[in-house]
Design a protein around this nucleic acid. Structure first.
Lengths: 187, 187
DNA sequence: ATCAGCATGTAAGGCGTTACATGATTCA
DNA sequence: TGAATCATGTAACGCCTTACATGCTGAT
């Protein structure tokens, strides 16, 4: 059961724009991507080594490293032609694993065991987190709107729009859910 | 870093309603819960053993097993008082890990590498899957609407409503995304 | 001078999936 | 009689997270 490791594709995808270090990759993942995919150092660095061994990425030549005599070097990787092909192959396959794991919904589903007020508190915690993240997503979206003439940005814009629209739906639901709970359940 | 294993709480939550076998639990998880949480046999059976060792569940006495002389017995578990307390403790803690991992969004984000038509195909595959799941969620919702006099069902109803409303937002987004791609990108 | 951020990596462990192994029961 | 479903479990493996280990660089 090969090729289930999607972090490979995240790395290749990011390198498809420009050469990056492992540290850079982590930062990118922590940006707009983070709401639909995650990555950690303990994940990224080994992945880069594997991709290099497979010939899908290569250490960038030239000026990016520090002087040889000093301590640790900065290692920038760039994507190879084989890497671009692997990325395209993955993009061409329309099957995708889309998974949502919301502990908040689990707590809601079993909420009767704790009662209405605890459940309201849980919904409110969710609501606050979503509202904060939505703000950030809207900020990204506003920035991208200005640069839609670049094709790449259209794709980024659509991804961020997905976030904005679903988060707005979440917030609407929060309002309704709190209302229904208060109406229907005594305490 | 204890107590990160949420499958424990899924099992306790399900047993809070009635005694169930491991097989039953799997079936329940594959129902309305499946859109926000998953579980497998290789996950559930060991969990039941652990919960039993911790005194949070117990094998139900009585008539559920098959005759002693025949082959394998059917083992129904029920929640203990300690189990109910553990469940409540978890519900009382408002922090929750809510994770979304959508490979479709990843493919969209890096879509420029494959082009407009491939990306449209990927969005359409997503759209179809969501439309099918939405149908099912609406069916669950319709059934629950009739029995909202029972408090438990109010909680289930809210969970399913969350699914319906977010999936509807997804579908709306799909329409807009396809339109924008066709307008903005040549091929 | 000290602290935040840059930068790379390893080790251990956690959690979960898939595949396998086994066998009973029920229904067409 | 054969297939589907009921039913329980184990083993191997995969992927990721957390914590640890190390040291440089730049700003206050």
């Amino acid at each position: 059961m090969a090729r289930e490791k999607k972090i490979d594709m995240v790395v290749l995808g990011l390198l498809s724009h420009e050469p990056l270090t492992g540290y850079d990759i982590k930062k990118e993942i922590d940006g707009a991507i983070s709401f639909f995919w995650k990555g950690s150092f303990g994940n990224i660095y080994p992945t880069l080594k594997e991709l290099e061994a497979q010939g899908l990425v290569a250490r960038s030549a030239g000026k990016l490293g520090k002087a040889e005599d000093s301590g640790r070097e900065k290692i920038a990787y760039s994507i190879t032609e084989a890497g671009r092909e692997a990325l395209k192959e993955w993009l061409n396959d329309e099957k995708a694993s889309n998974e949502l794991r919301y502990e908040t919904l689990l707590k809601l589903f079993f909420g009767a065991n704790a009662g209405r007020d605890i459940t309201l508190k849980n919904i409110e915690a969710f609501e606050q987190k979503i509202a904060a993240d939505l703000k950030l997503l809207k900020f990204y979206k506003g920035n991208l709107e200005k640069v839609l003439d670049n094709d790449d940005h259209v794709y980024f814009y659509l991804t961020v729009s997905f976030g904005v629209e679903t988060y707005e739906a979440y917030l609407k639901w929060c309002g309704k859910a709190k209302k229904l709970l208060k109406e229907r359940i005594k305490r």
